[in-house]
Structure formats: C-alpha cells, structure tokens
Amino acid sequence: MSVGLEVENLNMNFGGIVVARDINFDLRPGDRKALIGPNGAGKTTFANLLTGILTPSSGTIRLDGQDIGHLKESRRVKAGVAKTFQITTLFKRMSVRENIRLPVLERRGESRNWFGRADANAEVEDEIDTLLTQFNLQPSAEVQVQDLAYGQQRLVEMALTLALKPRILILDEPSAGVPSSDSHVVTEAIERLPEDLSVLIIEHDMKLVFKVANTIVVLVDGAILTEGTPAEISKDQQVRDLYLGARHGR
C-alpha cells in the first residue's frame, strides 16, 4: 500500500545558520498541503531537501517506505519526486511543445537515444498534446517560451513537471510573478491536477492557499510551528500574529 512521503527529524544548517530544525512531515497520496511562512522561514530550503538539490545534515526522507535521502536529484525525480521552480527555469529558446517533450522522453528513458527523430514518437506526441490541452497551452504549442507571458510560463512549468508523472509534486510559489488578475488561471490548473497526486504548495498568496489546500503547515525559522486545516490555521492566534496577520482576508 502506498504511504507517500515521510520526513523524520530533518535538520540542515549552513555553518552556524540553522535552516531546518527537526522537521517531521508527511504527504499522503491525494494530499493538497500548503507550506506557508514568512520570508526566510526555510520553505524553499525544505523543498530543496526533499528534491535532493540540498543534502540534509541529519534526518530521513522516505518515499513509500524506501529511504530516498541518499539519492541525487535526478534519481529522486525518477523515484517520483518533482518540483517546479520559484523563478521559472524553462528552456526559453525552445517551443512549448519541445519543453514538454524533454521530460516525457527523459521519463520514458529515451533521451539517451542517438538515432530517430525526437519528435517522431506518436505516443510521446499524444502525451504532450494531452498536457497542452490540460493546461490550455495548445494554441501556444509552437511558440518559443521566451515569447510567452509570465503567467503562461508558469503553466508550462507545471505541465513540464507533470510530464514526469510524479507521485509527489512540489509547487514552489506557483503564482509568483503572475498578476493577481490572472492568478485564478494557476489556481484552476492546480485544481485540475490528478486526484491521487500528492501536492505540496509553497505559496504566499493566501487566497490560492485557502482555495486549494486541505492542510496547511506553518514553517517559522526552519521549524514547523503548527499544522492544521485551513479553518484551524486561520483561527490560530500565533499564526495570525507571526505571519497571516494582515495577509489573510486582505
């Protein structure tokens, strides 16, 4: 039976600066968890520890009971943990279609092939079309990513990551840089994600967080302050004082 992601006593420090303190965390299949906290709380660091960009000082990270803490980033992706970036790091001079083709080919183990055209596999192209449709990117399929509006680039970022068919999807500030008038596009895209996918959303936009998350984890100074449903968190006086304050209900 699938148990998802489990983190136990995770610690990380850069010299004398502690950025993750004794974090215990889990993400079950189908979860929609949000990680919130003030700037510098260690949210992105925590995400980077989960994906293997950073190596923890101590603690364990397990996926479906298997220790993945020692795996490199690329191996962890293959194990099923994928992340979008806070600042988009797309292949800007490639078309949207090519951007999505890369992870599909990588996931299928075909990106090492020296022969045969990259765009000649009908199954791969169908999969790309499905993702383009899911994220309403079909009209821009052949457009170079650098020519897209930033909001659309965020959608490409999500489509590209979803092309890896992850079991754990970490969305690092998916609405960052998107005009508030367009943030509903990102919210709708998250709502359309597969139901059995475990999603961790790191986000400052509380409107988005309270709309899509079923659990909220509050991180302060590298440690988990509290965890609860959106209703519980919005009533928590400590969270309101430390972080939500004026943000929620703005």
């Binding site: 790091t89 292949f91 990106s111 090492r112 990551t161 890896l164």
Partner: peptide, 28 residues
C-alpha cells in the same frame, strides 16, 4: 541525425538550463 534525436534535444536542454534538466531527472 544525432542532433535531431532525443539525445540532441537533451544536449540543447542542458545548454538552455542545466538545473532544469537535473530537475527532470537527467544525469547532466
């Protein structure tokens, strides 16, 4: 043939964004 292949596309991907290639599971 090689540059039009998946291998060639991955090479272009590395040039464009090595961190992203790592994030999609490529052993860069």
């Amino acid at each position: 043939i090689v540059v039009a292949s998946p291998f060639g596309l991955a090479a272009r991907g590395i040039q464009e964004s090595a961190p992203r290639m790592r994030a999609i599971g490529t052993p860069v």
